[in-house]
Amino acid sequence: MEHHLALSARGVQMEYRDRQSGKRLLALENVDLDVPDGAFVSLLGPSGCGKSTFLKIVNGLLRQTSGEIKLHRVAKGREDAMVFQDASLFPWYTVTDNVAYGLVCAGVSRKAARERVQPFIDLVGLGGFGDKYPYQLSGGMQQRANLARALAVDAAILLMDEPFASLDAQTRELMQAELLRIWNAARKTVVFVTHQIDEAVFLSDRVVVMAARPGRVIADITIDLPRPRELSVKRTPLFQDYGERIWGLLAGRQEETASQGRAS
């Protein structure tokens, strides 16, 4: 499955200068990351570790201060598309228009875009809700629409920025299972940012653990759980081992994982 790299980052740094104090803040320090085509990779870390910043740099919303990022070219569509955090739908658009917006940005006419997004609305399980406005949807449904908008532009890589962070625990689990189903159907590369350990382990092929101040990668852990995964996998000892090891890393006990090694 892993024919080529979808994304490759080398020595990416992001530096801010505080306007008042003039002090330099290192949001990202020397980040290297390779993501093979079709892989599901999570960036996991506390707030302030630069995981969202990295995603925004890949997407082009921010520019790094040094280092470079390579994205594998695609024949049609885009290289990457972003699934934002909560409340990123336009409240003045219906679900259909929101999902079509990515295509409209790419220059497709509103009418044609509306027709083209129907399959994606069905894929994320929002069939029949196309004419609703965001305020009429639950948080979980809003994030389905958010996902459909990114899927509709037919990007090779989906960049997901804590998409389930504001959902309640039950909806979140449901959406995790849904995401895996959709990922299976759509065959995309996914870079998923989260601060929840079990979410990262459950979804990913690899979990890249990051630390804050300065934001950097401290471990890269391959998750060897069989696919397709059901939610029940969360109760297996292997799953819980992974969880504890990552928890230990985040808590600063890095010696426990010395054997795991660091990638690249």
């Binding site: 080529h4 890949v58 082009g60 919303l61 520019r63 280092g67 470079e68 390579k70 994205l71 070219r73």
Partner: peptide
């Protein structure tokens, strides 16, 4: 714009620093 800084290679699109 978002893509202004990219250098075009045959198989990879490269995002360069500011």
């Amino acid at each position: 714009m978002a893509r202004a800084s990219t250098a075009d290679g045959p198989t990879f699109r490269t995002v360069l620093p500011r």
